[in-house]
Design a protein around this nucleic acid. Structure first.
Length: 271
DNA sequence: ATGGGCACCTGGCTGC
DNA sequence: TGCAGCCAGGTGCCCA
C-alpha cells in the first residue's frame, strides 16, 4: 500500500497527536509482523516522551527521549490516532497508548510492516544505512541518476524503484513518473539520454509532491490517520488503467508484468 | 556488482 | 453458493 506520499501523510497526521506526549503503555496483539517484534519492545518505550516524528524513505521515525521507534507500513499497514477506548478491530496489531488519552493504533492485514526500537543514530540502523537519497531533496538530481545509471541494463522502471538509487518510488508512482517523463518503463536505464534522465528526476519530484498534497493514493486499504482515503487516485494517468484511453492522447493504456510487478504505460506518449 | 526470483501474509475479486 | 486461482501501495535475501 503505502508509498512515500502515503507515509508522509501518515507522518503529518500523527505528529501533532504524539509530539510532547508520553507513551504510557504499549500493547501488541500480534508480534509476527515482517519481523517478530522484539521481546522487551514494549518496556523500552513506556515512560518515554515523544520528541519528533520524521520520515526516511518509507520508514517513520518516532523520536523518543532515549531512542527511536522505526515503523514500516509494508503493503497494507496504517496508523491511526484514536480515543484510547476505541474498539479493537481485526488486524489491529500494535497500540501505543499516549498520556493524552489517545492511542496510536497500527492495523496491517498482510503483516508486511515492522516495528523496531533503535538506540543511537537511527540512520545508521541496518535498514536505513544503505538507502539512496530522498527524492524530494536536492541531492537527488539528474547528475546523481545519470551516474548510477551508467552501464546498467536494468529496465528504468525497476531502476527507479531500487532503494539504493532513490527511495520512496513504489509501483504506482514509478509508472506515473515515467508517463510524465515520456519514457517507456522497459527502456534500459543506461541507455537513456541526459534529457530523459533529467525529465525522470523532475517527474518523480512532481508526482510525489502532488500526491502528498492530495493525501496520497487510496486503491484499496490505505487510510490516513483520521481514517480517510487519499485523493490522488483521480490524478493517476496510467496506473490500473489498462485498456482505458490515455488522458493525453486517447490511446489505450497498456500493461505488462515487469519484475513481478504490474507496469502501465501509454504506447503513444512514451518512447 | 548485477539482475532475477522468492518469500512473507490476508482479503477481495473473478470465473468456473 | 462454493471454491480455486489470481492479484494487491514493499523489500530483504538468496541464487546464478
Amino acid at each position: 500500500m503505502p508509498e512515500l506520499p502515503e507515509v508522509e501523510t501518515t507522518r503529518r497526521g500523527i505528529a501533532d497527536a504524539v509530539i510532547g506526549r508520553t507513551i504510557t503503555a504499549v500493547s501488541i496483539r500480534e508480534r509476527r509482523l515482517r519481523w517478530r517484534v522484539a521481546p522487551g519492545f514494549e518496556a523500552q518505550l513506556v515512560g518515554q516522551r515523544v520528541i519528533s516524528v520524521a520520515r526516511r524513505a518509507k520508514y517513520l521515525l518516532i523520536g523518543l527521549e532515549r531512542g527511536t521507534v522505526l515503523v514500516h507500513l509494508g503493503m497494507s499497514g496504517s496508523l491511526r490516532v484514536l480515543p484510547a477506548a476505541a474498539a479493537v478491530k481485526p488486524h489491529d496489531h500494535v497500540d501505543l497508548q499516549l498520556s493524552s488519552g489517545h492511542v496510536v493504533r497500527y492495523n496491517d492485514p498482510r503483516r508486511f510492516g515492522s516495528f523496531h526500537y533503535v538506540t543511537g543514530a537511527a540512520e545508521e540502523h541496518q535498514l536505513l544505512a544503505s538507502l539512496g537519497p530522498e527524492p524530494l531533496h536536492d541531492e537527488f538530481d539528474a547528475l546523481h541518476l545519470r551516474r548510477l545509471a551508467r552501464g546498467r541494463r536494468i529496465a528504468v522502471k525497476q531502476f527507479i524503484m531500487d532503494s539504493h538509487v532513490v527511495v520512496g518510488v513504489g509501483n504506482i508512482y514509478a509508472s506515473e513518473a515515467l508517463f510524465r517523463a515520456g519514457v517507456r518503463p522497459g527502456r534500459a536505464a543506461g541507455r537513456l539520454s541526459g534529457a530523459q534522465v533529467a525529465g525522470i528526476v523532475a517527474a518523480i519530484k512532481a508526482v510525489l509532491s502532488e500526491a502528498i498534497l492530495q493525501g496520497g493514493t487510496t486503491l484499496r486499504d490505505y487510510v490516513n490517520t483520521d481514517g480517510l482515503p487519499g485523493y490522488f487516485r483521480q490524478k493517476l494517468f496510467v496506473y490500473e488503467r489498462a485498456g482505458e484511453p490515455c488522458r493525453n492522447c486517447g490511446t489505450a493504456i497498456r500493461s505488462r508484468v515487469q519484475g513481478q510487478r504490474a507496469t502501465y504505460w501509454c504506447p503513444e506518449c512514451q518512447t
